[in-house]
């Protein structure tokens, strides 16, 4: 059965600061490249298959490693840094990770979350999400799915606010991305011979490292913008 914890983690109402991040949407809208539902669809699809892929893989890896007593979070933190070229995106990821960790420690108290907080008080968001998924009783595949969904749900909501798009049309768009979300999550954590909860084969260095230079540039432009509504 689907884990109820996953529903809480994926809910945009989770009070972990996500509402103030647009994932590059505010800047791409300011530039005019996203201006309606079809252009938003292209942006979200691109974001999911670039930034969303390593995010899902990091979340699944963190969820799988959270069963260990000393998973070595500093190393996974470095792997996440290496996959995040833009300093502004690193800062946004760490801010969202720190806020999620704060919420998770109160909602699902667990030694695994305390260990993460001791090692990396401001973890990257996908890592915090993976360990929170463990504490919430969700699987690695579910953690990957939540990370993939997070890669598109925040920007979609930001576009509704900034462009006044029909929210139902935007939700239809998110629904149409369903197969892509499942594919990204499955790639991050292939259903396989490993028993649930154990580490998938392979090392952290082999996690996918897709990049999106346009998203990196948008993030840097946004951080330097005179006027902005969203943090990122």
């Amino acid at each position: 059965m689907l884990s109820p914890g996953l529903l809480l983690l994926a809910d945009s109402r989770l009070p972990a600061g996500g509402h103030a991040h647009s994932g590059g949407a505010e800047r791409v809208i300011a530039a005019g490249a996203v201006h309606d539902v079809p252009s938003l669809e292209r942006f979200l699809r691109g974001r999911l298959h670039t930034a969303g892929v390593p995010a899902a893989a990091l979340a699944a890896a963190a969820r799988a490693a959270a069963v260990d007593e000393s998973p070595g979070w500093e190393l996974l933190d470095e792997e996440a840094d290496a996959r995040t070229a833009s300093p502004a995106q690193r800062a946004a990821s760490r801010t969202q990770g720190r806020l999620l960790l704060r919420v998770a420690r109160r909602v699902w108290p667990a030694e695994a979350l305390e260990e993460l907080a001791r090692r990396t008080p401001s973890p990257h968001h996908p890592v915090a999400l993976g360990v929170a998924a463990y504490a919430a009783g969700a699987t690695a595949g579910e953690a990957a799915l939540a990370a993939a969904y997070h890669a598109v749900s925040g920007p979609a909501t930001a576009a509704v606010r900034l462009l006044g798009l029909d929210p139902v049309a935007v939700h239809a768009l998110l629904a149409a991305l369903g197969p892509d979300l499942a594919a990204v999550a499955e790639r991050a954590h292939p259903p396989g011979p490993h028993p649930p909860g154990s580490r998938p084969p392979g090392s952290w260095a082999e996690l996918p490292a897709c990049s999106a230079p346009a998203l990196d540039l948008l993030a840097e432009q946004h951080a330097r913008a005179e006027v902005r509504l969203f943090v990122s």
Binding site: R13, P15, H19, A20, R98, V103, L229
Partner: peptide, 21 residues
């Protein structure tokens, strides 16, 4: 300063994480 993503009331009522931080 905290940035509130178009929703100032959300940041003080529904999702206070950034303000607490």
């Amino acid at each position: 300063a905290v940035e509130t993503g178009c929703c100032p009331h959300t940041a003080i009522r529904d999702d206070i994480a950034a303000n607490l931080d």
